[in-house]
Computed example of a mutant assay.
Amino acid sequence: MDLDQIWHQFIVHLLANDEITEASVKKFTGIPFIYIHYQSPEKDEGLLFFLIKKAASHSMRGKQLHCETIFVRQEEQVYVFRHRFFVPQKKMFCCGNLCPDCILFRS
């Protein structure tokens, strides 16, 4: 699985929306941040979160990935989010503590 390809698809899906004029990804200390130029008459941040989640779901389709998006700041029409794609962690062995998600309980 190539994360660069997933990031590229994610940005392409974001730019397909009329309200988003520009989108880019910058990494600082290994943490990816997305910069989005969002121009909407309502200035609805809920709609922007929905557009981000929709673009992420399109780019993750068919892969075992999850995403996390956290709002960082806004400067006029530029919104900054901390966004990451990650593989979910699953237990691979029994530790003997009778955990509810123990591998022994899988069918």
Score class of each variant (00 low, 15 high):
residue 70 I to L: 12
residue 5 Q to K: 11
residue 95 C to L: 15
residue 72 V to D: 06
residue 2 D to S: 09
residue 67 C to D: 15
residue 26 K to W: 01
residue 26 K to F: 05
residue 107 S to L: 07
residue 21 T to S: 12
residue 100 P to Y: 15
residue 66 H to N: 15
residue 74 Q to S: 08
residue 6 I to N: 03
residue 33 F to S: 08
residue 12 V to S: 07
residue 1 M to D: 05
residue 90 K to A: 06
residue 104 L to M: 05
residue 95 C to Y: 13
residue 98 L to M: 07
residue 13 H to P: 04
residue 69 T to H: 06
residue 48 L to S: 15
residue 66 H to V: 02
residue 97 N to V: 03
residue 20 I to C: 06
residue 98 L to H: 09
residue 65 L to R: 08
residue 15 L to A: 03
residue 62 G to P: 04
residue 75 E to Q: 12
residue 74 Q to M: 10
residue 91 K to L: 13
residue 56 A to T: 01
residue 87 V to R: 15
residue 37 H to C: 10
residue 94 C to G: 13
residue 89 Q to S: 14
residue 43 K to E: 15
residue 70 I to A: 09
residue 96 G to E: 09
residue 7 W to M: 04
residue 88 P to A: 07
residue 8 H to E: 15
residue 104 L to I: 00
residue 71 F to Q: 14
residue 92 M to I: 07
residue 11 I to S: 05
residue 68 E to W: 03
residue 15 L to E: 01
residue 4 D to C: 06
residue 42 E to T: 15
residue 40 S to K: 02
residue 40 S to G: 11
residue 41 P to V: 08
residue 64 Q to H: 06
residue 81 F to Y: 15
residue 80 V to K: 14
residue 73 R to G: 09
residue 84 R to M: 08
residue 84 R to S: 13
residue 79 Y to L: 10
residue 73 R to T: 12
residue 92 M to N: 10
residue 7 W to Y: 15
residue 70 I to T: 13
residue 11 I to Q: 08
residue 102 C to S: 13
residue 30 G to I: 06
residue 81 F to D: 01
residue 55 A to S: 11
residue 1 M to S: 11
residue 9 Q to N: 14
residue 58 H to R: 07
residue 32 P to Y: 03
residue 11 I to W: 01
residue 30 G to M: 04
residue 88 P to M: 04
residue 60 M to W: 03
residue 92 M to L: 11
residue 39 Q to G: 02
residue 85 F to K: 05
residue 73 R to Q: 11
residue 24 S to Q: 08
residue 95 C to A: 04
residue 81 F to A: 03
residue 69 T to K: 01
residue 7 W to H: 13
residue 97 N to D: 13
residue 8 H to G: 14
residue 16 A to Q: 15
residue 53 K to C: 06
residue 29 T to P: 01
residue 94 C to S: 07
residue 37 H to F: 04
residue 68 E to R: 10
residue 75 E to R: 12
residue 56 A to K: 00
residue 22 E to H: 09
residue 76 E to Y: 01
residue 100 P to K: 05
residue 89 Q to L: 10
residue 9 Q to E: 13
residue 64 Q to R: 10
residue 63 K to R: 14
residue 15 L to I: 03
residue 74 Q to A: 12
residue 78 V to K: 11
residue 6 I to R: 15
residue 1 M to L: 06
residue 88 P to H: 04
residue 80 V to R: 08
residue 17 N to E: 14
residue 49 F to P: 02
residue 5 Q to I: 09
residue 85 F to Q: 03
residue 86 F to P: 06
residue 106 R to Q: 14
residue 74 Q to T: 13
residue 13 H to Q: 14
residue 6 I to G: 12
residue 17 N to W: 01
residue 44 D to V: 06
residue 77 Q to P: 02
residue 96 G to I: 06
residue 92 M to P: 00
residue 26 K to Q: 02
residue 89 Q to T: 14
residue 54 K to A: 04
residue 73 R to K: 12
residue 16 A to V: 00
residue 46 G to F: 02
residue 93 F to Y: 13
residue 68 E to M: 09
residue 47 L to F: 10
residue 74 Q to L: 08
residue 35 Y to W: 02
